[in-house]
Design a protein around this nucleic acid. Sequence first.
DNA 1: TCATTAGATGTACGCGCGTACATTTTCTCA
DNA 2: TGAGAAAATGTACGCGCGTACATCTAATGA
Lengths: 366, 366
Amino acid sequence: MYARTSNECAFVGGISIASRKEVAELAGVSEATVSRVLNNVGPLKEETKERVLAAALQLGYTPSSLAQSFARRRSGNLGVVMPYLPKTRWFSTYYFSEILSGIGSKAREEGYDLLMLFRNAEEPMDYSELFKMRKIDACIVLGAKEEPGELDSLRRLKEEGHPYCLINQHFEGEAFHEVDADHVEGSWQAVRHLLNQGFTRIAFLNGPASYSNSRDRLTGYLRALEESNLPLDDSLLFEGNFSRKSGVIAAKEMLPLLNAIDAIVAANDRMAIGLQQGLQELGIPRDHIPAIVGYDDSDAAELTTPALSSVRVPFYELGEIAVTKVLELLGCSPSETSSSSQVIHIKLPTELVIRASSKIMNPKEE
Amino acid sequence: MYARTSNECAFVGGISIASRKEVAELAGVSEATVSRVLNNVGPLKEETKERVLAAALQLGYTPSSLAQSFARRRSGNLGVVMPYLPKTRWFSTYYFSEILSGIGSKAREEGYDLLMLFRNAEEPMDYSELFKMRKIDACIVLGAKEEPGELDSLRRLKEEGHPYCLINQHFEGEAFHEVDADHVEGSWQAVRHLLNQGFTRIAFLNGPASYSNSRDRLTGYLRALEESNLPLDDSLLFEGNFSRKSGVIAAKEMLPLLNAIDAIVAANDRMAIGLQQGLQELGIPRDHIPAIVGYDDSDAAELTTPALSSVRVPFYELGEIAVTKVLELLGCSPSETSSSSQVIHIKLPTELVIRASSKIMNPKEE
DNA sequence: TCATTAGATGTACGCGCGTACATTTTCTCA
DNA sequence: TGAGAAAATGTACGCGCGTACATCTAATGA
């Protein structure tokens, strides 16, 4: 391979590719100058600049980002860690597509490429390994969950001072960088809305407690009840896994208690819809179905009949902000990034969107 | 920088990283041997292998994939081109999340990373540039559309013999590598089903004609009518943009003709649902709403009341196959890959899923 | 006019791997 | 036991950039 020392063009896909050397020769300058022109560094004569640019254009020269990354010791990639694929269905795909859109548009704006990383079923992903391999310069973790392997991996990430950020998951007592929505407020809003309408026996279909946002939602639920001096009734607490099906199942579980329930808050829209459908399938007449409020305000919320009231979460913005923050960390010196200093902890507000599913015939809403 | 020639460890995120040299020294071998052990090439003494592996483990050495990619002149990345983000909503996010899941799982299986590339609103993306920059080794194009810039870019991709593949879009007379579902058959199935039930005045809400699958669906629609010796009525043809809203709008357009329509086929579920809702909002009594069949069999199809009949498209499989094929192309020598030789043209079958929305009270289904 | 300096460009080398070729070691069979 | 082959390992270099340092040129000021 290194016999062809005088080689001046590589091949890719059967097409020759111009080298920096050729550009330099054509422009009558050194390779360094070509590099400088292309990166616009140092003082450069305008005329040289033009000559080099012209030569590059004429030869169709494009620097290899592979080589650039190597020389700069930066991949230019922003890692996005996704949950194990089959699990994705549990959340809405809406959830992820919104966040991803936010991440994608911001990353592009900042000149970073998006590297998708899917968690595996078996081994917990070793995030710091990704940095050691130089695959990514920063990373955003979605759908994290409180599991031993996950936690260890995140701790290492933090200790080693890599630029990272969690979205929508908080680890108690860990001080990870995180961007989140205020789910305590969100579920509080939902319950408050129902209370305002005169409902008092409000069931709560939550997600798995291993997600911090599930716990947050429970807190909001409890707080709202407490504020109205309503006692907590454990039998009104249910748990699903964010899937529609688990909503259907919850409907069955609620059946015996249905006369003691006049409203339900669900932890996401899919479960809320499953609930609607499950109750209908069980033969509950439409006007006996409790008021229902979902969560996420996904596009599915307006696909159902009656349309689903829901708590809007600014997913797109969460994605954007996460990118901004994580790139800020990247900008800092490693020492600043490290542990102690500034921990990112952002909480965006939620907003209740009221639709037909939570309205009563003679509303008492103030 | 190059003053520290004797340097033996780099730093990343404030943590030192072992170098290949250190591993070599600790194991008492040359760097080349370390490389050979890690890549398992050439004949190696078992004992050496173990010693090197142990040293690597002890020092926590991980090869830099940046340097590997550079030396191998392969990025190890599989590019996935996505439509301009705001447009994504038009299709269902379901559509993309399914395809992406298929791509993601297969790519991981094959040891490739996924690089997400979002098309821009302004400039049409230059695909071959991505290869020239060595950002990707192969690429899969989603949501392609018949536009001049797009077409040129794809042509270059083909001419230059890069491993690429389109999903769900066919360019007439171009012989691009493509993996698709059989949408002629799909819409034929939908119409056939309605005809079998005795419906004869079947409206068709199609997507934009700039997508080949829209044209395919029209063909299937026409073919089914023709087979039943039914004349084509232009006034029964409508066009939306795949969004729910455009379904609502179509409902309004259909209103004056509603007594001449007893069934509707829509080109995706979102429009079908918009149609259902639009007609309801216009005050059409439930039993006067035409039978409706959607397309994609997205998860939204079972969220509506009545549940939506729909044509199932194997999106996940499309993604998987696209990866397989594109990596096969990558394996070939460039010359074989190039133009003439073997063009990939895969068409997967669709399947009609019948639900309540297309049933009649006294069904005549055979 | 010449010394000084800023401006412009060239030279040289490292980034961390893979690998062709050279060299040394071990094995095989006469 | 020694020659030749095969196995094992070492040596050396290129991949295509960015960039520190050296060099050269033109502008500035006394």
